[in-house]
Design a protein around this nucleic acid. Structure first.
Lengths: 145, 145
DNA sequence: TATATGAGGATAGCATGCTATGTAGATGGA
DNA sequence: TCCATCTACATAGCATGCTATCCTCATATA
């Protein structure tokens, strides 16, 4: 067969993603954060008052996934939601003080995981890898499903 | 802040892994397979009669994850389990004819997803990306947790 | 041999993600 | 104005993964 799992980009990507998630989880769990919550906060720290739909677009997850993540974040006191002033279907998502206070430590945690992963690569290698991965993302985004 | 999510290796890896999983899922679902089942079959097609512990080692997932995946595979008629002849705690995992018949079409599906992802890269680029990703995997494996 | 420790598995509980649906409000015509 | 269609969210159901426990059997050691 022409299929060698250790040379399969999909297989290797899955393994690497799980390792990243495990390390990130270990470092932000003490802050009371989970990985998807952190990812969502990255967007909100840039500016809150967004709708669920806007967050869904920017983070490239499905609407249902974001709905559940936001529900857990509200439960955990990281966000509040207010009615949208022009659209009664929508709500705006706002950061709590607690969530604001976590920006620096959480970003530091994520940064250190990235540094750990990149320890064996030079800066040029890292940029190269990132570039290739973004190329693959573009290729796979073209024809969804 | 020193953190730009679009330049974060962890962020990009997560996005790429989800895209791979979505495409693979779409292509093997018609065969009655899910991604983790396919990954497990890749090992078993090389030779069955393995214990859960051996599969856990080779695929780098946690024991509980493999236990659940094997339970679903048995439910779906992909594997059978027999008592280990020397160790009453363990069981051996065997492929069913159904699972054997899926080897070629499933590998072809996975291969085509990889090809699609690599469409924008030359062979040298792909090898380079794979190499860098394996380097990162090694770095993250060193200090678990 | 008796006991402590280890190894193989199963199960519970939870977070992420996805697809598929359902509901209510918004909107653009006929 | 009325209706078809769209859009914003919520919910259900399921697969993966992980950590934490628990049980049983295997093994090494006192």
């Amino acid at each position: 067969m022409p299929f060698e799992k250790n040379a399969s980009m999909g297989f290797v990507t899955n393994r690497l993603a799980r390792l990243f998630a495990q390390h990130l989880h270990a470092r932000i769990a003490p802050l009371g954060l989970a990985p998807a919550q952190f990812m969502t906060l990255l967007e909100l720290w840039e500016g809150d008052g967004l709708t669920q739909a806007e967050l869904t677009d920017r983070l490239d997850v499905e609407q249902a996934t974001m709905a559940n993540t936001l529900a857990r974040m509200k439960r955990d006191g990281l966000i509040e939601r207010t009615p949208h002033p022009q659209d009664r279907r929508a709500q705006l998502v706002w950061l709590t003080d607690k969530a604001r206070s976590l920006e620096q430590p959480a970003k530091q945690a994520a940064h250190s995981v990235n540094q750990m992963a990149l320890a064996g690569l030079g800066e040029a290698d890292a940029a190269e890898a990132l570039g290739h991965m973004n190329t693959m993302i573009e290729s796979l985004r073209e024809k969804p499903g």
